[in-house]
């Protein structure tokens, strides 16, 4: 589905953010990208949809290299890649519905989008997605009137409006409280399963990642230092990724939290789709 080969990014300042990254993600797999701040997680996913221009290497989407395309072809490529942001990145003064419909911008012409005359099927899909994330009654609300968790749900709906094949998720829970973080992670993972999307999630919270994803890639100083199952993250490996620290607590912590979750009837019921 997604295949990165030799992806390298050197910023104009000379900093090497990514060094020869090769990685492939099959459809339906949820991959967590972990690593310390500045390891290049954000740069990596931005190189995929070219919000950041990679210096070298190839980004193949369904076997097609999109790392050099420009103009219309780039927009075509981007519309197959949904993105969810840390600070929601909603346009605050637009309504919830306009934010969700903006996911269809690459499918409609300028004047159509200017007059907000989206095809009926798009509106129906937007409604279904809003209903799926539980916000269908808010569609006319201005998005700055929403809470953090609600904003992130709108962000998710916008990304899925694109009918993407690949989902890039940048620190989806960094601005949210622990409970909302869990709900958002669960929602993202469920939706990826439903639509069989390849997904890369940047995440700081190792315990949260372990709980939800299929595969973990550890990044340190722009290089992959771990690629394997979430269960394989031993304290030794965490030390390679993040540096020296007492990791025993993290593990204990994550165990406790999942216990709590399983004890909670309601949450356990929703967690049916959890791997």
């Amino acid at each position: 589905m997604l295949k990165l080969t030799g992806l390298t990014k050197r910023y104009a300042t000379g900093d090497l953010a990514l060094n020869d990254i090769s990685l492939s993600v099959p459809a339906g797999q949820v991959l967590a990208l972990i690593g310390p701040s500045g390891a290049g997680k954000s740069t990596l996913i931005r190189c995929v949809n070219r919000l950041v221009e990679p210096t070298a290497g190839a980004v193949e989407l369904d076997g097609r290299d999109i790392s050099k395309v420009r103009g219309g072809a780039l927009r075509q490529a981007r519309r197959q890649i949904g993105m969810i942001f840390q600070n929601y990145a909603l346009v605050e003064r637009l309504s919830v519905m306009e934010n969700v419909l903006s996911g269809r911008l690459a499918y409609v012409g300028f004047w159509r989008s200017y007059f907000r005359k989206f095809p009926a099927n798009d509106v129906k899909q937007a409604y279904r997605l809003l209903a799926r994330v539980g916000l269908e009654s808010m569609l006319d609300k201005r998005s700055d009137a929403l809470s953090g968790g609600q904003k992130q749900r709108v962000g998710i709906a916008r990304a899925l409006m694109q009918n993407p094949k690949l989902l890039l998720v940048d620190e989806p829970t960094a601005s949210l409280d622990p409970k909302t973080s869990r709900q958002i992670m669960r929602l993202i993972c469920e939706l990826c399963q439903e639509q069989n999307l390849a997904t890369i999630i940047n995440i700081h919270d190792v315990a949260l990642a372990q709980q939800f994803v299929h595969r973990v890639v550890g990044l340190r100083a722009g290089e992959i230092v771990y690629d394997g199952s979430p269960d394989g993250l031993t304290p030794d490996i965490l030390t390679t990724i993040y540096g020296e620290e007492d990791w025993s607590l993290t593990h204990q912590d994550s165990g406790k939290q999942s216990d709590n979750d399983q004890n909670d009837d309601v949450e356990a019921a929703i967690m049916g789709g959890h791997p």
């Binding site: 780039l74 981007r78 605050e92 903006s102 300028f110």
Partner: peptide, 26 residues
């Protein structure tokens, strides 16, 4: 960030101005 988000959907230049920039400066 909203400009990045709308760009990431594959929107054209004018659409980005219309959806991400204009509401912010109105």
């Amino acid at each position: 960030t909203p400009v990045e988000a709308v760009t990431a959907t594959g929107a054209g230049r004018m659409q980005i101005l219309n959806y991400a920039v204009l509401p912010q400066i109105m």
